[in-house]
C-alpha cells in the first residue's frame, strides 16, 4: 500500500519543492544539489572500487562463478553489439566516403583511417555504452531485486560478504568481457564498413583492408579504454543495485540511475584517456 502511495508522490513533491522555496535559494539549491550528489556518488564508488580490488586480490577465488558471469555478459550482449556496431560502421563509412568524394574524390585511405578511428575511439566507447545499457541495467536490476527481497541481508547473515560474493565475480567477468567484446565489435564494424564502401563507393577490398595507419599506440589506447570501461561499468551498476531502497519503485529507479551514471562515466573516461593519449603522443 505504501508503495503505491510513493508511486504517485515523487512528482508532486518535485513541484512542491520548487514552488515553496524562494527563487534565490532555489537557484543555489539547483546548483548545489548536483554537486553534492556527484561528490557523494564518486566517493561511494571509489570506496566500492577499492574494496572490490581488495577482494579480487585477497578474497576467495571462485572461477566457476566468474565464467558463469562472463557467459551471461557475452550471451546477453553479443548480438546487440553486432547489430549496433555493424550499423555504426556502415554509417561512418557512408558519411566519410560521401564527404571525401565531394572534396578530394580520393577514397584510398578510407579503410585505413576508419580502422584507426575505430580502434582509438568508436570501437571501445560505443561498445562500452552498449554494455552499460544492456549489461549494466541487468546487473542493477538483479542486485536491486535481491536487496528488496532481503536476499542480500540473508547473505550477510550467512557470513557471505555481498561485495565479495556478488560484486567481485561481476567485476572480473566484465573487465575481461568488455575487452573481448570490444575486439569483436571493432572487427564487425570494420567488416560492415568494408561492405558499405564496396557497394556504395566501389572501394575494392584490397584498398580498404589497409593496415598501414594502425600503430601500437592505437591498439594501446583502445585497449586501455576498454579496460577502464570494463572496470567502471560493473562498479556503477552494482553500486546502484546494492543501494536500492523502497520496493519495486526503487528497483526501477536504480536501473535508470545505473544507465545514466555508467554512460556518463564512459564519456568522461573517454575524454580523459583521449586527452592523456594526445598529450603522450605529442610528447613522444
Amino acid at each position: 500500500m505504501s508503495n503505491q502511495k510513493q508511486a504517485a508522490d515523487p512528482r508532486m513533491q518535485e513541484e512542491n519543492d520548487q514552488s515553496s522555496a524562494g527563487l534565490v535559494s532555489a537557484f543555489f539549491a539547483a546548483i548545489g544539489e548536483p554537486i553534492v550528489y556527484v561528490t557523494r556518488t564518486v566517493k561511494e564508488l571509489s570506496a566500492l572500487f577499492l574494496v572490490t580490488i581488495k577482494y579480487v586480490i585477497a578474497g576467495k577465488r571462485r572461477p566457476d562463478e566468474v565464467v558463469a558471469q562472463m557467459f551471461e555478459i557475452g550471451n546477453r550482449s553479443v548480438v546487440f553489439i553486432a547489430v549496433t556496431l555493424g550499423f555504426l560502421g556502415m554509417i561512418l563509412i557512408y558519411q566519410a566516403g560521401f564527404q571525401a568524394m565531394k572534396i578530394t574524390g580520393d577514397l584510398t585511405l578510407l579503410g585505413a583511417l576508419f580502422l584507426q578511428l575505430l580502434m582509438r575511439e568508436f570501437g571501445p566507447t560505443i561498445t562500452a555504452l552498449m554494455i552499460a545499457t544492456r549489461v549494466g541495467t541487468g546487473m542493477a536490476a538483479e542486485l536491486g531485486s535481491m536487496v528488496v527481497t532481503d536476499q542480500v541481508d540473508a547473505m550477510k547473515m550467512c557470513a557471505a560478504e555481498p561485495i565479495e560474493y556478488l560484486v567481485v565475480p561481476r567485476f572480473i567477468a566484465s573487465t575481461i568481457m568488455v575487452i573481448v567484446l570490444t575486439i569483436v565489435a571493432v572487427l564487425i564494424s570494420y567488416l560492415a564498413g568494408a561492405l558499405t564502401a564496396y557497394t556504395a563507393f566501389d572501394v575494392n577490398f584490397r584498398t580498404y583492408f589497409d593496415l598501414g595507419f594502425v600503430s601500437y599506440f592505437d591498439i594501446i589506447i583502445g585497449l586501455t579504454k576498454a579496460l577502464a570501461y570494463g572496470m567502471t561499468i560493473p562498479i556503477i551498476a552494482c553500486h546502484a543495485g546494492l543501494n536500492v531502497f523502497g520496493g519495486s519503485e526503487g528497483v526501477g529507479r536504480a536501473t535508470t540511475q545505473s544507465v545514466v551514471n555508467a554512460s556518463l562515466a564512459v564519456v568522461v573516461i573517454d575524454f580523459i584517456i583521449s586527452g592523456l593519449g594526445y598529450v603522450v603522443l605529442a610528447l613522444f
Binding site: F80, A140, S145, V251
Partner: peptide
C-alpha cells in the same frame, strides 16, 4: 518488480538499436 527491471532493460536496448538503424 522484476518485470519493471526487465522492461527498462528491453526499452533501452531497443532504443539503442533503433537509434543506429
Amino acid at each position: 518488480a522484476v518485470g519493471v527491471g526487465r522492461a527498462v532493460n528491453a526499452s533501452v536496448v531497443a532504443s539503442a538499436i533503433a537509434i543506429f538503424v
